[in-house]
Each structure stands twice: as C-alpha cells, then as structure tokens.
Design a protein around this nucleic acid. Structure first.
Lengths: 96, 96
DNA sequence: CGACATTTTACCGATAAAGATAAGATGACT
DNA sequence: AGTCATCTTATCTTTATCGGTAAAATGTCG
C-alpha cells in the first residue's frame, strides 16, 4: 500500500473536473460560456497542464454547482482525512 | 437570510489561513521557510489581496498539515453542503 | 520613549495564467 | 471517404503571481 503523498495534484483535479463535466453532459464550449473561462484554458486545466488560480477553480465549481472541495479531493479522502489539526508533534527543527 | 453566493472567497481563505497559522504559532517568516513561499506573498494571500494558484495553496496546506479543504471551507459548510451533484434542474438556457 | 519582532506595502524581474484565435487531432456517424 | 462535433495544441497579448529586497506600518515589551 504505497501511500502517495501527493501523486499529481493538477492531474487529479483535472480528472475530477472532467468527470464532473461529463456527468452534466457539458462540452468545453458550454462550460466556457458558463464560467467565462475559455475552452482552451479549461482543456489545459482538465489535462493537468495548468496551475489554475483559486478564483478560476471557484468559477468552475460554481458553474458545475459543486463545492470547490469536490474538485480537490476524493469523496473517500474527505471521510478519512478528518479535518482538523493533527494535535501536535510537528517539529520545526532547524528552521526556528 | 440573505444567502451570499460567494461573499469574498479570497478574504475568507486568507482569514482561515491566518487562523491556522496562529494555531501553530508560526510567523510569516517561519511559514515562508516551510513552504518556500516568500513572507510578503503569504501576507498578500492572508489579507485576501492575492489570488493564489492551486499548487501554492497546496504547499501552504501541506506545511500547516491540514487538507486543502480546510483552507477553502468552513467546517460548518462541509457538513451541510453534502458533496454531490444536486440531481438536476440546471437549465443552460440560451447558452446552448 | 526606544529597541525589537512581525506584518504590510512597494518596487523589480521572471515566470505563468488566461482570453482570443486559429490550427491540428481525435472521434463518431452516415 | 467525408462531415461534423469535440477536444487539443500553438501562438500572441495582457495581466497577475511569486520571489527578492527594502522600506514603512504595526505591534509588543521592557
């Protein structure tokens, strides 16, 4: 069980985004008009080739009518990764 | 109950970020070294003056050891906003 | 008040996002 | 094969992020 810390954030977000768009039977053109983001830009984001800004992701999430979180995490994680600070034990070491 | 669709995303994220940093008693300098993001840049993000990229937020979340979701949403929302597509009823109207 | 730490703001240069457009690539279907 | 829709890639311009540095605020404490 090789726990990938962060396999490929942009690729994963892109995959989720594409899946969500497919669920609603939207073309890139349609989503582009709903979001105000150009279709080429959306394509780059969906293929994990672009590091989108927060407001850009927010526009997409809004158009797809899902919370932004949906774009970032697997529903699976959302359950396991409780949500709060892991108590303590984070040593700043030589940084301080 | 005036439902604000998106009051001020960047400001809200910044507030949450600052709160999380305060929880761990980190200065901007310290977080800067943990993340590789400059302290001025972090300041801009925390004050809602900068629209950070996804990987930038991810670096910050990783340094603070919280899931990215924590930066984006109130724990309150996370419960109410179920997580899935709202069935149907989204009319693309004149766009198609 | 005077040091000191922390944060904010203002510049700069390099890199990258995003819109527009156009050109390829891919696929489906007759 | 050809047409059509959809997606990808490329180019260009505008704009913004981001790191670096340095300077101004804003605390905070003795």
């Amino acid at each position: 069980m090789t726990m990938e810390i962060e396999p490929n954030l942009l690729t994963d977000v892109g995959r989720r985004l594409r899946a969500l768009r497919a669920d609603q039977d939207l073309t890139l053109e349609q989503l582009a008009r709903l979001t105000g983001i150009s279709a080429p830009a959306l394509s780059l984001i969906e293929t994990g080739k672009r590091d989108a800004r927060l407001t850009t992701l927010a526009k997409i999430a809004a158009a797809l009518r899902v919370p932004i979180r949906t774009l970032l995490e697997d529903p699976a994680d959302a359950a396991s990764t409780g949500g709060d600070v892991p108590a303590e034990g984070y040593d700043l070491g030589d940084y301080l």
